[in-house]
Design a protein around this nucleic acid. Structure first.
Lengths: 142, 142
DNA sequence: GTACTTGCAAATTGTTTGCAGACAC
DNA sequence: GTGTCTGCAAACAATTTGCAAGTAC
C-alpha cells in the first residue's frame, strides 16, 4: 500500500546508475516498496494509477533497464509471460501450476548442492530453483 | 541419426495410452531416439523430413498430449519458446544465456536439499533447477 | 456412422520496434 | 542544441483456436 517516498526512490535509482525520469520513479516506487512478483502488464497498471500517461513500451524499456542494473530479477516460470521479482537476494520459488501463485523459498530453507564447476570463460549468472506443484484443489464445490 | 523403429515407437505410444496416428508416430520417432532438447518448431522441421504433410497445429497438439502422458517434460527456460525434453528422468539443467545452449546436469551430480513440506492437497509436480551462465566468450576475433 | 485427428488460416497475446515529438542539462 | 526518453501504433513470433475434411474402427 504505502509506497517508497520520492526521495528514497530517487536515491535508489541514482545508486544503481539509472538516470531518473518521472516514469522510472513511479515504476521504482511500485516495485521496491516491498518484494513483489509482477508481470509487465501489472507494472503498467500499477504505474498508471499515479502516472496515467505511462506507456506500455516505457514499462518494457524500464524493466529491461532495471534488470541490467540488477534492480530486479527476471523469472522464467510461466511460458505466457515474464515475471519480475523485486527481491534480488538469493532465494528460490514455489510455483502453483493451477493458480499461477508464486511463493518465495528462502536460501536458508533450501540448498542446492553440487553445482558443477564451470569451464573457464563461463560465469555463473544465477541459479533458479522452481518447485512446481499442482493443487490448491481448485475449488469445485466452493 | 538412426531413429526408433516403427514397432518400438508404436509400443511406446501404446504403453503410454496414446492412440497411434502417423504423425504421432513420426514425432515419437524424432523425440525418443535419444534424449533431446527441442522447440516445437524444431520438432515440426524434423517430423516433416519424413512426413512432409505434418502441420504446425498437430505438432503443438501432440506435444501437449505427450506432456500429459508424461512422455516429455516442458522446460521453461527461455521466454521466447518452450523447450521439450525427451529425457523424463529426474535431472537438472545448465543454460547458456548467450548461446541458448542447454546441458543436462544429472541428479547424482546435483542435489536440492530442503524442499519445503507442502500443504495438504498440494502435490509436487517437478523440481526444476536451471543454472544460468553467461560466457562461452562469444567468439569476437574468431 | 461416430468420434477422434488433422491441416489450414485466422486469431490471440506478450513483447519489440520505428519514429516523431518532448524533455533534461 | 544534443542526446536521451516517451508514447503511439504497427510489427513480430510463438502458440491457440475454429472449422471442414480425412481417417480409423
Amino acid at each position: 500500500m504505502d509506497k517508497l517516498t520520492t526521495n528514497d526512490a530517487v536515491a535508489l535509482l541514482r545508486r544503481a546508475g539509472v538516470p531518473v525520469t518521472v516514469q522510472r520513479l513511479e515504476i521504482a516506487r511500485v516495485l521496491f516498496s516491498r518484494p513483489l512478483h509482477v508481470s509487465a502488464d501489472q507494472v503498467l497498471a500499477m504505474a498508471r494509477e499515479n502516472a496515467p500517461e505511462t506507456s506500455r513500451a516505457t514499462v518494457y524499456n524500464t524493466l529491461k533497464l532495471f534488470r541490467e542494473k540488477k534492480l530486479v530479477k527476471e523469472l522464467i516460470v510461466d511460458p505466457e509471460r515474464v515475471v519480475y521479482d523485486s527481491n534480488t537476494h538469493p532465494h528460490y520459488h514455489l510455483y502453483d501450476i493451477n493458480t499461477g501463485e508464486l511463493t518465495d523459498v528462502s536460501a536458508e530453507e533450501l540448498r542446492v548442492v553440487g553445482v558443477p564447476r564451470l569451464p573457464e570463460g563461463v560465469e555463473l549468472e544465477q541459479v533458479d530453483v522452481i518447485i512446481r506443484v499442482r493443487g490448491k484443489a481448485v475449488s469445485e464445490a466452493a
